[in-house]
């Protein structure tokens, strides 16, 4: 499975022997519910992995474990060959400085204008002064197709699509080398979804970053992923090229990708 995940690179020439991200035996339970039950995955540098799975299958928890927002019960997480769980707080913070994250609902800070949201990390790391942050925000907003004047608006004044773009701008502003995307097209119309996907692909390419996305949207998965992995009952049950989704020969994946009611995945419905 690891080998498959390192195939089909979008950003060629950046792959190395040590994967950018390596997960081994990741387990996490919340009370009696075992959400992750031994997740193994490798993501090569410069590649884009899309994790698929039904609601509650543990996709978000997997990402949160890598980000350090959730502590796994067992297993290891390596970034650039270094065990993240064994890192000191300072090392962990330094790693966090290299990571960007696009949250499902944007998670923009209501109390701050757009320009401050976009440059939040740069300001927090003192890599930029407040005086220069507006210009920098305008520059990054332009990369996601927004006018600089949007910077003075409050997040509440933006449409859903604009909020996603601003969230994307915030995720890439500090030029991270790893970016996570949590359901980037959820709640958007198909055209806006395609626009956001295009921006994600452009931004990831431009930065030469490694990307991990989770989504239910098959069209989005095919557009943004080099490789797809299917998470089912807390384990990765299939990995392969994102372009093959829908005709993989794996009954679980094909049922999920084609949105079929009948198949090995049974929804727990009470009648």
């Amino acid at each position: 499975m690891s080998d498959m995940l390192q195939q089909a690179p979008r950003a060629a020439g950046t792959a190395s022997a040590v994967p950018k991200i390596r997960l081994r035996g990741l387990r996490k339970a919340f009370g009696a519910k075992q959400v992750l039950d031994g997740v193994d995955a490798d993501v090569a540098a410069g590649h884009s992995l899309v994790i698929l799975g039904g609601s509650g299958s543990g996709k978000s928890v997997t990402i949160k474990c890598i980000l350090g927002l959730v502590q796994p019960d067992e297993g290891s997480i390596e970034v650039d060959g270094r065990d993240v769980l064994a890192m000191s707080r300072r090392e962990r913070e330094a790693l966090g400085d290299r990571i960007g994250m696009l949250f499902q609902n944007g998670a923009l800070f209501d109390s701050l204008p757009v320009w401050e949201n976009v440059c939040f990390k740069l300001l927090a790391q003192k890599r930029i002064t407040r005086a220069k942050a507006r210009d920098k925000a305008a520059e990054v907003l332009a990369q996601v197709g927004l006018a600089g004047s949007v910077g003075d608006l409050s997040p509440a004044e933006l449409s859903g699509g604009m909020q996603k773009r601003v969230a994307l701008a915030r995720a890439i502003a500090a030029q991270p080398d790893i970016i996570f995307f949590d359901e980037p097209t959820t709640g958007l119309d198909p055209i806006m979804g395609a626009v956001i996907d295009g921006l994600i692909v452009d931004c990831v390419k431009r930065l030469g970053a490694t990307a991990v996305s989770i989504t239910h949207d098959m069209a989005s998965a095919r557009r943004i992923g080099d490789t797809a992995a299917m998470l089912h009952k807390g384990r990765i049950v299939w990995t392969g090229p994102a372009g093959a989704l829908g005709h993989t020969g794996n009954a679980l994946v094909d049922q999920f990708a084609n949105g079929e009611r009948e198949g090995p995945i049974q929804m727990e419905l009470r009648r």
């Binding site: 350090g68 400085d97 990571i99 994250m101 499902q104 998670a107 209501d110 109390s111 927090a124």
Partner: peptide, 20 residues
């Protein structure tokens, strides 16, 4: 209310990912 809303809308997690 303010911090609670930030919690349920992932803004607190976002702070962590933004080196804060």
């Amino acid at each position: 209310a303010e911090i609670g809303t930030m919690r349920v809308t992932d803004q607190i997690d976002a702070l962590t990912t933004l080196s804060t």
